[in-house]
């Protein structure tokens, strides 16, 4: 039997990888992809716990998370397109119109 902590550790590593990606990358789309990695890591965690606690709640949550991820990806990419139309750039540090 594979201990639960292995899955949790794996989930943690993947999460941190995704987090680092969010912080490091300049390309906005890759940042969004890193967010996807984080979500997947959360999924692994949930499903592992669902399995070891003999409950279906984890799988349910994972399902919903996949749905939400889809929606979020769509919206994010739409925003990228809007920005791309205006500035012809997708680098994160070139988009600073939130500064007053």
């Amino acid at each position: 039997m594979i201990p639960l902590s292995a899955y949790v550790a794996l989930s943690a590593i993947l999460f941190m990888t995704g987090l680092i990606g969010v912080l490091i990358r300049r390309n906005f789309i890759v940042v969004l992809m890193s967010v996807e990695i984080m979500l997947n890591a959360a999924n692994i965690n949930l499903v592992a716990f669902s399995h070891y606690l003999n409950s279906m709640a984890g799988q349910m949550s994972a399902l919903f998370i996949i749905a939400v991820a889809a929606a979020e990806a769509a919206i994010g990419l739409a925003i990228i397109i809007v920005i791309f139309r205006g500035k012809m750039a997708t680098n994160v540090d070139q988009i600073n119109i939130l500064k007053w």
Binding site: V22, L23, V31, D93, I95, N96, I97, L98, K99, W100
Partner: peptide
């Protein structure tokens, strides 16, 4: 802090 750059905000968030 108010650089206007989103990833800075993300970093602070994290």
């Amino acid at each position: 802090l108010q650089s206007g750059m989103v990833h800075h905000y993300a970093a602070i968030l994290i």
